[in-house]
């Protein structure tokens, strides 16, 4: 596909994402805060719905095009050490400013100019890693791409089926009305 056409498709899909994210009020930074306060049902249910649909959809996609299907996202760096550290730094960042990536983009769309400041503040952090830290660390990286079924040495359908059923069960439990 021509790259310009790809960009156009991407932009149009992006508009759809933004529309639904704003309507649903998705922000995992707020969600983490709710979980820490013991009020995590809302974000857990949102997450479980996204998880169930996406896991099934991504898995089934390989039956339409063999090059699709489940793929590792990002990289497992330094046997996962850098993933945990970067997750911790990212988690600290989103709790400080109150917006994950989707939340930041949504808030910008809603006219909250604070999140333009947040958005621009990504630049020095990214530049620090790309131009200073990465060139030093890269030599010592052990980089892998692994999926859970490979790690467990269990065929994909069994793992996908099990996690989707568990997620569905959890969603049903969270959706049950409280007994008075």
């Amino acid at each position: 596909m021509d790259f310009k056409l790809l960009l156009l498709y991407g932009f149009l899909f992006g508009i759809g994402f933004g529309f639904f994210v704003q309507k649903a009020g998705i922000c995992f930074a707020h969600g983490l805060g709710e979980i820490y306060m013991g009020k995590g049902k809302r974000i857990l249910r949102i997450f479980l719905v996204i998880f169930i649909i996406s896991t099934l959809g991504f898995y089934l996609s390989k039956f339409i095009a063999p090059e699709l299907g489940l793929k590792p996202i990002g990289q497992l760096r330094g046997y996962g050490f850098y993933n945990i550290i970067s997750g911790m730094i990212f988690g600290a960042g989103i709790l400080l400013n109150g917006g994950c990536i989707l939340g930041t983009l949504r808030q910008m769309g809603e006219g909250n100019l604070l999140f333009f400041v947040v958005f621009l503040s990504f630049i020095p952090g990214m530049a620090l890693i790309v131009y200073v830290i990465d060139p030093i660390l890269k030599q010592g990286y052990q980089v892998q791409n692994i999926l859970l079924p490979e790690l467990l040495a269990v065929p994909q359908p069994y793992v996908v089926g099990s996690v989707v059923i568990l997620a569905l069960f959890w969603l049903v439990m969270l959706s049950r009305p409280k007994k008075k």
């Binding site: 990002g74 993933n83 970067s86 997750g87 600290a92 994950c100 503040s121 990504f122 990214m126």
Partner: peptide, 19 residues
């Protein structure tokens, strides 16, 4: 907000697919 954004910038770049 600036500190939070700076940390997010580090987090998303140190290990891709983090956020």
């Amino acid at each position: 907000a600036i500190l939070g954004g700076f940390l997010i910038g580090i987090g998303v770049t140190l290990a891709p697919g983090t956020c």
